[in-house]
Design a protein around this nucleic acid. Structure first.
Lengths: 340, 340
DNA sequence: CTGTTAGCGCGTTCAA
DNA sequence: TTGAACGCGCTAACAG
């Protein structure tokens, strides 16, 4: 099975040049005479030689890959992001390593492991909890934080969640809603906090309150949305509209309500966050705040590869614009305006 | 920025042993005396030394990672599979490289690129089109095919799609349906073919036909499901039930119908394939054929790492069981039976 | 423009 | 059990 593959030495021998010249002919063709380059190329053709990236990386003191640390790979939210990431990373000549931080009992240890072992030339971190000062101090490779919040030391690519939440709330208010609830993400999550903060401030700006009863604690999952629906149904004084911090929860919320015989958006309006693929195909189609996930991945990869090339550990953060996608899940109340 | 990190030589000097002993103390502790091992470990502690995996891999003639080639990373269908893959691969001490074969104009070239460049010790292939004899001949590392069909040379982990389709069709028949349509996957896809074949044979076994008009060509996407719905609506003679080759298409189909004012499952029953997360939260909740995706990933990873360890290029294929998940999207017609 | 030399950091012989 | 020496395959530095 272990079949010997051609090395740079074989090429050198066949082409009757030194290994250094072979190396140059392949890496920096400009530095080599046309004729010798041809001899080398012919030998390469003949033997099917390919450079051994491990040896090259050892010599160049790099790894040739970028590591994406995802809190939960099973979450389809990351599909688009990873797709964007993969495209840019491949185009820049890196491999894309992916690891799930939740697989491990202690995610922080896992991150340390990766850093210490120099398995990657750069890190894309989708888990803000890990982005602390200690990590910043220890890391010898650039790190970019995507989607999440962490220590401001880290450059990041993310959307303005406060603004997104405000967009959602203002839309509901424009449509005539005055009693508005909110389904949150998991406790301790920065997205949860910022979207809740945006909700609160936008409501306050309109002179409205967010009663404790109308804050439904979720965890971004479908099931937690369904659980929120059950709590909504249990209430005597219900909000006429609910802003969900994720489309998944909105979807669970809507489903549970419909299964219980409620009609939407007649009985309650719903607005989500993310604009996942399925949202437009639900009944009613979900009005939501769109977050361009593929673009987030692309930008994170681009910035990271730039940092690696520049041998810097920092760069500017970038904010990706969110926008309101108006569909059918928000009802216009008597006094409200039309969409837009 | 380029800060020098401790090497095995530093440890050797500090612990006053040879580098060979340090290497042994770390890789095969049993071969080293307790006392010297302690000295080494202390030096390791003191310096924060970590082995350089690139150097180790060069020396061991391996790469330390496994490559997953996915036809479309943006497709959330792969989320769960990758999650299972990542968990097992990490536990076995490998890194998980991921690449999208569709990013490239010519996927086959890309695969060749990866193989020739020995970037991985093994390959998980989710794209059956690439699994041809040529690939089998050229590859020096084990390859496992997941979810898809390809040349029988390759070991694979997949579900029985013919059986899954038959399960769906038989369920519809049990529920009293006699006119049954099918939404297919993309042309040329093996899943498309096998599920269509299963559909046909199960119908035939019940003495039923599959008229050309009732074969709706899709591509597994939400939008193609919606397009199928439009064609369904255009027909004078409509099937009372439709088996969709993917849940995504079923979801698009249902959504488009509902938006057009149709009622489900009263007017048409729908059964899907995959059991994606959202299926249970739709209205009506989607009856479907469940495909344990996480398990597929886990098994593929396990089998691949075993092949690598055994230095073999082949192993037995494995079939993962599918099952019918009975929800609300299939209506029982007059003559039909209850679920199960 | 090309060749020589010297490692990158590690694991693995072969002796002792 | 340990150490010396070598080489995995490649590229960077320095001459020429």
């Amino acid at each position: 099975m272990r079949q010997k593959t051609a090395t740079i030495q074989d090429i050198a021998r066949i082409a009757k040049v030194s290994t250094a010249t072979v190396s140059r002919a392949l890496s920096t063709p400009g530095q080599v005479t046309e004729s010798t380059r041809e001899r080398v190329m012919q030998a390469v053709q003949q033997t099917g030689y390919q450079v051994n990236p491990t040896a090259r990386n050892l010599r160049r003191r790099r790894t040739g890959s970028i590591l994406a640390l995802v809190p939960n790979l099973a979450n389809p939210f990351f599909s688009q992001i990873l797709s964007g990431l993969a495209a840019v990373v491949a185009a820049e000549g890196y491999g894309l390593l992916i690891a799930d931080t939740q697989t491990d009992p202690d995610p922080a240890t896992r991150v340390s492991f990766y850093l210490d072992n120099r398995v990657a030339d750069g890190l894309v971190l989708f888990d803000g909890r890990l982005a602390d000062k200690r990590l910043a101090r220890r890391s010898r490779v650039p790190i970019i934080l995507a989607c999440e919040w962490g220590d401001p030391l880290f450059p990041s690519v993310r959307v303005n969640n406060v603004e997104g939440a405000a967009l959602a709330i203002r839309h509901l208010i424009e449509r005539g809603h005055r009693s508005i609830g909110h389904i949150t993400g998991p406790r301790g999550n920065v997205l949860t906090d910022t979207r809740l903060a945006g909700t609160r401030s936008a409501l306050r700006a309109a002179g409205l309150e967010l009663p404790t009863d109308w804050v439904f604690h979720g965890d971004f999952s479908l099931d937690s949305g369904a659980a929120a629906a059950r709590r909504w149904m249990d209430q005597a004084d219900r909000p006429t509209a609910v802003f969900s911090a994720s489309d998944e929860m909105a979807c669970g919320f809507i489903g549970a309500l419909q299964h219980a015989g409620h009609t939407l958006p007649a009985e309650v309006s719903v607005i989500g966050f993310d604009d996942i693929e399925v949202s437009g195909h639900l009944t009613p189609a979900l009005t939501t705040i769109s977050q361009p996930r593929r673009r987030i991945g692309e930008r994170a990869a681009a910035k990271l590869t730039q940092m690696i090339a520049a041998e810097t550990l920092t760069c500017d953060s970038e904010e990706i614009a969110v926008e309101l996608v108006c569909r059918e899940s928000v009802r216009t109340l008597a006094s409200g305006l039309r969409c837009r």
